[in-house]
Amino acid sequence: MGKAASTVATGVAGVLVVDGFKRWRRTVFSRSNVVTATAWGLRGLRAAETGAESARLSAADVVAEAKERIGEPPRPAGGGGSHDHAH
Rank of each mutant, 00 (worst) to 15 (best):
G2W: 00
G2P: 01
K3S: 04
A4Y: 09
A4G: 01
A5E: 15
A5M: 03
A5R: 13
S6N: 11
V8A: 04
T10C: 02
G11N: 12
G11W: 03
G11L: 03
V12E: 07
V12T: 09
G14Q: 15
L16G: 13
L16S: 08
V17I: 04
V17E: 12
V17A: 13
V18N: 11
D19R: 07
G20S: 00
G20I: 03
G20E: 06
F21I: 07
R23I: 02
R23K: 07
R23Y: 00
R23C: 00
R23N: 14
W24C: 00
W24F: 10
W24H: 11
R25I: 00
R25L: 09
R26S: 14
R26K: 15
T27Q: 06
V28C: 02
V28M: 02
V28K: 13
V28F: 08
F29T: 03
F29D: 04
F29H: 01
R31V: 09
S32R: 14
S32M: 11
N33V: 04
N33L: 03
V34W: 06
V34Y: 08
V34A: 02
V35F: 06
V35A: 04
T36R: 07
T36C: 11
A37W: 12
A37D: 12
A37Q: 10
A37Y: 09
T38H: 10
W40P: 09
W40S: 12
W40H: 08
G41D: 07
G41W: 13
G41P: 02
L42Y: 14
L42R: 05
L42V: 15
L42H: 11
R43G: 15
R43M: 08
R43L: 13
L45Q: 09
R46S: 08
A47P: 15
A47F: 15
A47M: 11
A48G: 07
E49W: 07
T50K: 15
A52G: 02
E53N: 05
E53A: 08
S54P: 00
S54Y: 15
A55S: 15
A55R: 10
A55E: 14
S58Y: 12
S58R: 14
S58H: 13
S58P: 03
A60E: 08
A60G: 06
D61A: 10
V63N: 07
A64I: 02
E65V: 01
K67S: 06
E68I: 00
R69F: 14
I70D: 12
I70V: 07
G71K: 11
G71M: 09
E72V: 05
E72C: 07
E72F: 10
E72A: 04
P73N: 03
P73E: 06
P73D: 01
P74R: 01
P74E: 01
P74M: 02
R75K: 12
P76H: 05
P76F: 01
G78V: 02
G79Y: 00
G79L: 00
G80H: 02
G80Y: 06
G80Q: 09
G80S: 07
G81I: 02
S82W: 10
S82V: 02
S82G: 10
H83Y: 09
H83E: 10
H83L: 13
H83D: 05
D84M: 04
D84Y: 05
D84S: 06
H85T: 05
H87F: 01
H87V: 03
